[in-house]
């Protein structure tokens, strides 16, 4: 049995969560949340914490030198720096649209890195 006290990052409310786990590490109960999202976060955070990673990728021939990108969904927290390394090496040619895939299955996480802003080509 263990208790974990967390602050939910699901939304700006920042609920104070209490997550109880049993001896195998499995979550028994989440309290203090005010929505389902909070319970999910609590469960995940003590077993396999994940985060969305946002950064930028260089653009060739664009009106702007870089395009903001994000992981489409969360990736495991311990893969953040590996993901960043891949993002640093990546590049994409203009024009770029929102949602364009910049990196498939980044670092084997099963999650794509996608563009989060449109960058038109330079005239």
């Amino acid at each position: 049995m263990a208790e974990h006290e967390l602050t939910c990052i699901g939304c700006p409310l920042g609920c104070a969560l209490r997550v109880e786990t049993d001896d195998t590490g499995a979550v028994v109960r989440v309290t203090g949340n005010t929505c389902k999202r909070g319970e999910d976060y609590g469960r995940r955070e003590v077993t396999c914490p994940t985060r969305t990673v946002t950064s930028t990728v260089r653009v060739a021939g664009g009106k702007e030198p870089v395009v903001p990108v994000r992981t489409r969904t969360d990736i495991p927290k311990d893969r953040i720096f590996a993901c960043m390394e891949a993002v640093r090496q990546a590049h994409i040619a203009a024009p770029v649209s929102i949602g364009d895939v910049v990196l498939h299955n980044v670092c084997g996480t099963g999650v794509d890195v996608i563009a989060s802003k449109a960058v038109p080509a330079r005239e």
Partner: peptide
């Protein structure tokens, strides 16, 4: 460019 925008308006987490 970080995420966390729009939860209230669009019920999803968007970047700026």
């Amino acid at each position: 460019i970080h995420n966390g925008f729009g939860l209230h308006t669009f019920q999803e987490e968007l970047t700026g």
